[in-house]
Amino acid sequence: MKEQNIKLGISIGDLNGIGGEIILKTFEDARMLEFCTPIIFASAKTITFLLKHFNLDINFQGVKSLDTVIEGKLNVVNVWQDNPQIKFGEESSTGGSYAIKSLKAAVEALKSNKIDVLVTAPIHKATIQSEDFNFPGHTDFLNQELEGDSLMFMTTEKLKVGLLTDHVAVRNVSDKIDAKLITQKFNTIQNSLIQDFGISKPKIAFLGINPHVGDNGVIGDEDDITLIPTLAQLREKGHLTYGPYAADSFFGSGNYKNFDAIIAAYHDQGLIPFKTLSFGKGVNYTAGLNKVRTSPDHGTAFEIAGKGIASNSSFKEAVYTALEIFKKRAEYAEITANVLQKQPRKKQYSGRSRGN
């Protein structure tokens, strides 16, 4: 498949945040249209307002349906006909409700293969909550809508961090982690590294659950009882799993450079060092699904929304990453199909007995 034929769906995020700004700044560079056909799920009126507000000169094509998308152009699908008032920097249910309208329309298009990949602009976890949408964020919603076991996988070219638990209160983390979860998340990350990033034999490190991996039970026994035995079982099966390592020194020492991916026990244990090392260049990739979805490594940034100073670097990286993973998956599927075709077929039993 040619790069320009990849249909890139984009959900606009919270209207009062920086989503619209970073999307449009990304496609202000017309060269981006050489790589894909971007499709924003919003409305022509909303995009026109944003272009005027940020003084951006970008041509776009408003379309009523995905069947009329024009290849090589910036397309805007009219998900709503009204003209919602945008109040930059304000947390409101209105901003959240339009974010969900955009997201749901984009996901439906992804499920029906009307788009090839999805890049989501930031939403606000409080403003999106309603009777129709009761999820802590994108990942859990996508896990329901798309096949697979979703996993938050923060990626750059040289650093990839996955999580055993993501949007879970710290007091509940240890209760969530068991051998089944550890094995499941490991398998998801290993499979993603192989099919999505082209790493044939990935080396994966685990961070300990407790400080200093529990110091032999002095600071908690979860590592000794659960994590260490499970990693030993994975190694016995031939997997390249390492650790657990004490989280406080793992990144500062540069040890992370020795591995293809790191699995952290909980959200901040993994995301604080990731964002410290790569903020603005990182990508949030939802691994483990049958479709490709990425997003920037930051939130709605209400404090700078509407000021025209938001950086689109992470969003642009999210676009590039989505396109690269889509192509890697296609290559992997082709290689796998060729291998299966070359395997000798077993002779089928005819049902006849000798001598009869």
Rank of each mutant, 00 (worst) to 15 (best):
H138V: 03
L110V: 04
P273Y: 00
T294R: 03
D297N: 09
I199W: 03
A105R: 01
E157T: 14
F326D: 01
G13S: 06
L207A: 08
S314V: 06
S150K: 06
L234V: 03
G220N: 03
R31F: 09
N255V: 10
K87W: 00
D248M: 07
E147T: 15
Q195H: 14
I263F: 08
H167S: 12
L271Q: 07
N258P: 10
H239R: 02
G89S: 04
E71K: 14
F54A: 05
I47G: 02
F141V: 04
G162W: 01
T155N: 04
A205K: 09
D166A: 14
D223M: 02
V63K: 02
F259R: 02
K2C: 02
G217K: 11
G137E: 09
R354H: 13
D149N: 15
E303Q: 14
N356G: 13
Y349F: 15
D178Q: 05
N5G: 10
T300I: 08
Q129N: 12
E334M: 12
E157W: 02
G13R: 01
Q4T: 14
D149T: 15
N216Q: 14
I194W: 06
N187A: 14
I309S: 10
L240W: 07
C36E: 01
N356M: 11
D268T: 07
F41K: 01
V319C: 10
G214W: 07
E131V: 12
F135H: 14
G299V: 06
K64E: 11
L227T: 02
I58P: 05
L56Q: 13
Y349R: 14
F153N: 03
R293A: 02
K316R: 15
F35E: 14
K237E: 13
V173S: 09
K275A: 04
Q129K: 15
L15K: 00
T156K: 08
G288Y: 07
Q348L: 14
S253K: 10
N187H: 11
E331T: 13
D82Y: 02
G95F: 02
E108W: 00
T321N: 10
H167P: 09
G355W: 08
D140M: 12
D166C: 08
K111F: 05
I189G: 03
I47N: 05
P84E: 00
L207M: 13
F27P: 03
E91A: 13
S43A: 05
Q81T: 13
G308I: 10
I204L: 11
F326I: 00
R354P: 00
G62T: 13
T127S: 15
H212I: 12
T286H: 05
V63N: 01
Y242G: 07
I22E: 01
T156N: 10
F88T: 03
F259Q: 03
E222C: 06
K342E: 12
K327W: 01
G280C: 07
K104M: 09
F279W: 05
E331R: 13
I23A: 01
A322Y: 01
F54N: 08
V168F: 03
V339W: 06
Q144Y: 09
A301Q: 08
P344C: 04
